[in-house]
Write a protein that binds this DNA or RNA. Sequence first.
DNA 1: ACACTAATGTAGCACTCGCTACACTCAGGG
DNA 2: CCCTGAGTGTAGCGAGTGCTACATTAGTGT
Lengths: 186, 186
Amino acid sequence: MGRRDELALAATDYVLEHGLIGLSLRPLADALGTSDRMLLYHFGSKDDLIATILRTSNDRSISRIRALPASPGIGQAVIDLWQAMTSSSIVACSRLYVEVSALGLFGSEPYAAVVRDLNSQWMAALGAHLVASGADPSSAGRVASLVDATIMGLFLDMPLDSRKGQRRTVEDLARAAEAIAQSGSA
Amino acid sequence: MGRRDELALAATDYVLEHGLIGLSLRPLADALGTSDRMLLYHFGSKDDLIATILRTSNDRSISRIRALPASPGIGQAVIDLWQAMTSSSIVACSRLYVEVSALGLFGSEPYAAVVRDLNSQWMAALGAHLVASGADPSSAGRVASLVDATIMGLFLDMPLDSRKGQRRTVEDLARAAEAIAQSGSA
DNA sequence: ACACTAATGTAGCACTCGCTACACTCAGGG
DNA sequence: CCCTGAGTGTAGCGAGTGCTACATTAGTGT
């Protein structure tokens, strides 16, 4: 593993903790034991660095979802997805994803473009797990849209809501997903 | 209406269009036909300006929700809420709210503090409309949590999803809200 | 006419930003 | 032994940041 890959991993960890919005090369370099000069040498530009970081974080999060074994039923699939997304190893990745989505809200490049890519990967993984857990492929898209929106909204309010309240909402969401799947297959 | 109030309204419109994240006093002042010097004179500091802007936007959005007549049933209440939030007059307020929530995700002050305030007002208005539309007060909180999360998630993905897809998700959400309200009152 | 205050324009300070020019070290190959 | 090229440190550029000092204007009350 070359120096560049080491720096990419360390920079990703730093951004997962501190967020993208106030990111500045010099404090990042200090935390990594290097200099802004070196970050630009290895990654070319700040934007390219960020692209690498987002790809790294997203790969980590998506591969976690893909590794989920099929759940016994759509409702349980929703609960298992939530537990995976909030597991300590990737909850920061999910939070970063929400931050980037918000950055894309006002069309600020280069984020708006990369958001599309990350979103399509996430929706595909989400849909795949629902289908593997027994969802009818014809209704999986509808379920996925609802589950996606609700989970993202829960992450957005994460600093405000209690874990119990979120758990309760996820269980309600799971029942709603079951209901949609049943009405869709009827 | 004094000069300060004029500037506050115009600055709010500007931020509703451009977002908070890259906000800089000089471009804002140029768009408003004044100078950064004047903005600081009238508002004291950039943070105080932002606080005023957020209060203005939030008041606009909350008063729109409060003005909603009671809906015939919880499901319709959810649909009416969505239509109000996405109406052309305040859809930008909702978007700004989502952006500020994302800013609070990583605890960056002074946003993390103000997010709590905005969120409690929004949740109160949301719960009030559900109760006025027939929700059992004992289960209105649960419904409100689900509706809040899903609607915020839909706003987060607004640049990505089609309007029809969002409409479909809102209808599924409305049915889920009905189901929760019925199971809660049983 | 005079004083006082709100409002404004000009100029600039101290700072941070992403990024770059330039010189340097140090390993490996001819 | 010298050359090459990857990696690194120092220093700084030009632009932009929030914010301030100072002088000026315009309007009002006495």
